[in-house]
Computed example of a mutant assay.
Amino acid sequence: MAQDVFPGRYTATPGESATVFLIGMRANRWWKIPTVVRVGSAMGRMLAYLSRTPEAGMLGYHQWAGRTTILVSYWKSPEHLQRFAADRDAPHLAPWRDFMRTLAGSGEVGVWHETYQVPASGIEAVYSGMPRFGLARAVGHVPVTAGLTTARQRLRASRAA
């Protein structure tokens, strides 16, 4: 899917705090392809669910694949993320329990995540000649104008909002 590139400079406009969730896996024993595929395919089901269930609270994401994968996602709140993780009807809890029961500690596949709650006053972003990406893709963007040309100015503006 081609994305439009926006010439010029833009900044993200979250308007409120953001929950940034990083998650990934590492194929420690990459030759165990069926195991790696089983663990990795669970994320595809989760993303499909979250894409068609906006009330779950995920605003957007980007992912990269390789021996170590990473998915960066943006959420309305940590509570939305935690609710999704614990929801018996959502496609996270069962695969996680399966992983913990069958693979945790085996060394075949590693999984990791980090969660950051970023107050609106601490958000600064700029994109130059990019498609909507990252936080801007999740919450929108506006052109950089006078008073928003430097990181310091954008941080000052986010604190004033």
Results as ranks from 00 to 15, higher is better:
M1D: 10
A2Y: 09
A2H: 09
Q3R: 14
D4A: 15
D4N: 13
V5F: 12
V5A: 04
F6I: 10
G8R: 05
R9H: 08
Y10V: 07
Y10C: 03
T11H: 15
T13M: 12
T13E: 12
P14M: 11
E16C: 07
V20F: 09
F21L: 07
F21M: 10
G24C: 03
G24A: 05
R26S: 10
A27L: 01
R29C: 04
R29G: 05
R29K: 15
I33K: 11
P34M: 02
T35Y: 10
R38A: 13
R38I: 00
V39S: 08
G40H: 02
A42L: 01
M43I: 14
M43G: 07
G44C: 05
R45F: 03
L47H: 01
L47D: 00
A48E: 10
A48Q: 12
L50C: 09
R52E: 15
T53S: 13
P54K: 08
P54N: 06
A56K: 03
A56T: 14
G57Y: 02
L59G: 11
L59A: 10
Y61L: 06
H62I: 06
A65D: 11
A65N: 13
T68K: 13
T68C: 06
I70H: 11
L71P: 03
L71D: 02
L71A: 11
Y74C: 04
Y74N: 04
W75R: 01
W75I: 02
S77E: 07
S77M: 03
P78A: 11
P78H: 11
R83V: 08
A85S: 12
A85D: 04
A86Q: 13
R88P: 12
A90K: 01
A90R: 01
P91R: 02
L93P: 00
P95E: 03
D98K: 11
F99G: 03
F99H: 05
F99A: 04
T102G: 05
L103G: 06
L103F: 07
G105D: 05
S106T: 15
G107A: 06
G107C: 05
G110Q: 00
V111K: 06
H113V: 00
E114G: 00
Y116L: 14
S121M: 03
S121T: 13
G122W: 02
G122K: 04
G122D: 12
I123Y: 00
A125E: 11
S128F: 01
G129R: 06
M130I: 01
M130P: 03
P131D: 06
F133M: 08
A136I: 00
R137T: 03
A138K: 00
A138D: 05
G140P: 04
H141P: 02
P143G: 09
T145I: 09
T145V: 12
A146C: 05
A146H: 09
L148T: 15
L148Y: 14
L148P: 00
T149R: 15
A151C: 09
R152Y: 14
R152S: 14
L155W: 11
L155F: 14
R156D: 13
R156F: 10
R159E: 13
R159L: 11
A160K: 11
A160Y: 00
